[in-house]
Every structure is written in C-alpha cells, then in structure tokens.
Simulated scan of single mutants.
Amino acid sequence: MLFASVFMVLWVLTSRTSGQSVTQTPSRLAIKEGVAVFINCTYQYSGVAYLYWYVQHSHSEGPQLLLTEYTGKETGDAFFAEHLKADKTFHLRKEAGGLSDSAAYFCAVRDTGFLSPRSSSGRGRLDLVQSDAVFQSHPEISIAEGQDAILLCNFSTADSNPYLFWYRQFPNKSPQHLLTKTRYSAADQNFAPTKYSGTLNPETKTVDLKIKDVSLQDAAVYVCALRGNNQLHFGAGTSLTVSPMEE
C-alpha cells in the first residue's frame, strides 16, 4: 500500500500575508502502487500568487521543493500540477504512484511581490554564485523544563538581504511559522515575541532561535529555512526533547 499524508498548510512569510489561505484535500490518501495520484489544492488570495508544492519524506527532515507552477508541467512518470488562476487551484497529479512516493505533500502560495528573482545578462557569460543552503548541525537536543533553549542554524547565500525563517512541526502536522528575520528589520516578525526570538548575523551567516522558559508542550522538530532563488530552502531540522522538571 502507498500512503501519502496530506495536510492543510499556510506558509506565512511576512506580516503582509493576512487573508491568505490554502486548503488541501483529502487529509490522508491511501492507494495501491501504480494507481493515479490526485491531491486537491485550492487557495484564497486577492493579489497575484505564486504556487509551490513541497514534499517531506520523514518528520526528521525538512520539506523539499517538489515543483512550482513553472516547473510542474506534465513529464511522463513525474508529479505535475497546473495553476488554474480563474479557479484558484493547483492540484498535484501523478499518473502512477510508487512506494517511494509515500510522504507528506504541502501546497504553498506566496505573493509575487515578495519575490526577488536573480537575473543575468550578456551573451556567452557564465555567472558563478554561492548556492542557497541551510545547515542545522544538531539533529537532536535535550533540555530540562523551565530552561531556555537555543537552536543553531547556519546558511549560505549570495543574497545581500536574505530572508530567514523558523518553523515548528509536531508529528503528523504541517510546519507552523514561528518568526522571520531579515538584515534590515530590527524586530522579529513572529506570532509570540515573548516566547521566541531570533538572532541573525549576516557576517557569520547564522540565524539562531531562542525559546524562553521551555515547557513539555515545546517538544517538536524546529526547522530553519532560507528564501532564495524564488523558493524556500529548509534545514534538516532539530528535534527538541524536553524532560520534566524535578520536584
């Protein structure tokens, strides 16, 4: 049997995403190997949207880009999707599913106003730039309840003003945005500023996450991400284990 877990997900990249929503159905799909795969994705957004599909094969690793509306054309045995702007849909399809396709699939929408595409000009010219990547060197950390936790993240990019993000993911749930950091923004963009804070150092290319007064409910996988070249690049994630406070 082939199992593909699909979740509703909203990638909140900046505070300007108010009113944006993404809905996926079904919530869980079980099919036989060789049967066609169809995952519904509809969205609501008042502006011009840019669509992505991400895939996550294991809870211990971050989501990876599967396709975009420009790369998701039908190519035989691969996944494909067509952005129907009038219907506001971006359904994911594959002619025949395989055992290796068992994973969680996330549909994402982003305002094209946030895009900063790289461009080059000149004939016969080759530009070499630093690749976009995220590194989380500690796959697991353990901390006692009530202490503060600091999660480390290194990144590489040629962008002079990169956008960095931290997400939290519980088992069988979609990633939840915690905060956004940019070089020229002094304040964190997050939903719980008294709980989470980030430190971005563009020189050393680190963006560490601090979680204050850790509780048992904070046990989860924390994933660092970088926006570069019109897509999100995720780290492998750090699993935070919280031990109860001794009485």
Rank of each mutant, 00 (worst) to 15 (best):
Q130A: 07
A219T: 05
L178D: 07
L151E: 01
L126K: 15
E145Y: 04
M1P: 14
P63D: 07
S21M: 09
S160M: 01
A236C: 08
T238N: 05
G97M: 06
F234L: 04
Q147H: 12
S60Q: 15
W166H: 05
G34R: 02
K205M: 14
P202A: 03
C107F: 10
D159F: 06
N201R: 07
P171D: 13
S60E: 14
A219S: 13
L179C: 08
D77V: 08
F80W: 15
E247T: 02
T182R: 14
N190I: 01
S18C: 03
V129M: 11
A236L: 11
R93C: 00
T112A: 06
A225M: 07
G72A: 08
T206D: 09
C107E: 00
S174L: 00
S121M: 04
S156I: 00
P202E: 01
D159G: 01
S58V: 05
G98E: 10
L84Q: 13
I150E: 15
A144R: 11
Y222H: 06
S116T: 10
S131E: 12
T23R: 15
P193I: 00
A133K: 08
T42K: 13
S197Q: 09
S5L: 12
L200S: 04
L66T: 05
E95K: 14
G198P: 03
K85I: 02
T14A: 13
R123G: 05
E140H: 11
S21F: 12
A108N: 02
V242Q: 02
A104V: 09
D218A: 04
L232I: 06
T206R: 15
S137K: 05
S185N: 11
W11D: 04
P202L: 07
V129Y: 09
D77I: 05
L240G: 04
F80Y: 15
V9L: 07
V35C: 08
A236T: 14
Q44F: 05
V22W: 08
E74N: 14
F7H: 14
R168V: 08
T89Q: 12
G47S: 15
D127V: 10
Q231E: 13
S46Y: 09
V242R: 01
E246S: 12
L13R: 15
P63L: 08
W11V: 05
V48G: 03
L216M: 14
G146T: 03
I143P: 02
I141G: 02
E203G: 02
S239M: 10
Y50N: 06
S116C: 06
R28T: 12
G235K: 04
D159H: 11
V242T: 01
V9E: 06
K181F: 00
A158Y: 14
